[in-house]
């Protein structure tokens, strides 16, 4: 279990993370979503103990994560820049080091993954392409088998087949070795099926936390003649609206009750589902 209590992070005058109380039970895959600058990286690096909270605490199974090896050896954060040394070490050396530092590291599995991603062991990190560096981060992250494994947009630059391999291996290894996984991403449609729960950060605050499958039912679009739609949505939570000639489409948040569904049928309004990514865009301030 990861627990944050009144966790706050400030950079000078800027508050990157407003006071946050969070309990994340172990053994699940969480998705962390948010627009650029929403606080995803700040949150993950603070949970990993890389960054000292300005206020409040982060504990992992009751142990504070900052500056405490009992916690940090059980936590692995893979960042979008790889974050694995200065780039002059060979991949083989980095893997050997990871195996020394991390009690749960599985070198056999790491070798298998290196082959599957076709990564050259003898090359140095900085001679790799962007996508290869990311893939190597994935290898380290998965083979570490850390109780808390976090991927902070670790897939950046990876092509579609490599990302699919990442997703397959993540699920395969998660089933074999259940652990807590946090995955931050902008690839909502592609990666949301992997999550059990989703956290949406917005402007340094936790906007929403919900089972991702429940969230899929939360948006409703209503389409019809403008005046009728305006009447219908009065008093409901409107996330966004678009107009094409006399026709208006409104996106609502929250499931419609039976009364509203009956009304919609009576007035000939069209009700439709809202895809997760669209819902996310509306919830975080619309397209901009």
């Amino acid at each position: 279990m990861i627990t944050t209590s009144a966790l706050q992070v400030r950079y000078g005058d800027t508050t990157a993370l407003h006071p946050l109380d969070l309990d994340l039970p172990a053994g699940r895959i969480y998705g962390v979503l948010g627009r650029n600058g929403a606080g995803k990286t700040t949150l993950l690096s603070t949970l990993a103990g890389f960054r000292k909270p300005s206020a409040g605490t982060v504990t992992f199974d009751g142990v504070p994560v900052f500056d405490d090896a009992r916690a940090t050896t059980r936590i692995c954060l893979i960042r979008d820049d790889g974050g694995l040394g200065d780039g002059t070490d060979t991949l083989r050396d980095i893997l050997a080091l990871a195996a020394m530092l991390r009690p749960g590291f599985d070198s056999v599995y790491a070798t298998e993954l290196m082959d599957r991603f076709a990564l050259p062991r003898k090359r140095t990190l900085r001679t790799l392409s962007r996508g290869q560096r990311s893939a190597f981060g994935i290898v380290v992250g998965l083979a570490s088998r850390a109780d808390l494994t976090m991927f902070d947009e670790a897939h950046l630059g990876m092509d579609a087949p490599s990302r699919q391999l990442f997703h397959d291996e993540l699920l395969r290894d998660y089933v074999r070795h259940p652990r807590t996984v946090l995955l931050s991403t902008h690839l909502i449609e592609e990666q949301s099926p992997l999550f059990e729960q989703v956290l949406i950060l917005h402007q340094g605050r936790l906007l929403l936390r919900e089972d991702v499958d429940d969230l899929r039912t939360r948006g409703v679009s209503v389409t019809g003649p403008q005046a009728v739609v305006d009447d219908f949505v009065f008093g409901l939570t409107v996330l966004g609206e678009r107009q094409l000639g006399p026709t208006k489409e409104v996106t609502l948040f929250g499931a419609l009750d039976e009364e509203h569904r009956t009304l919609a049928r009576r007035y000939g309004l069209q009700l439709g589902p809202v895809a997760l990514q669209e819902l996310f865009i509306h919830l975080t301030g619309g397209a901009a």
């Binding site: 699940r28 895959i29 699919q164 997703h167 397959d168 699920l171 395969r172 998660y174 089933v175 099926p193 992997l194 999550f195 059990e196 991702v212 499958d213």
Partner: peptide, 17 residues
């Protein structure tokens, strides 16, 4: 559940549900 999750690339908890 796990075969299903792996085949369709979805979270095992979703398949279990």
């Amino acid at each position: 559940t796990n075969q299903y999750a792996a085949y369709y690339r979805i979270n095992p908890a979703t398949a279990a549900k």
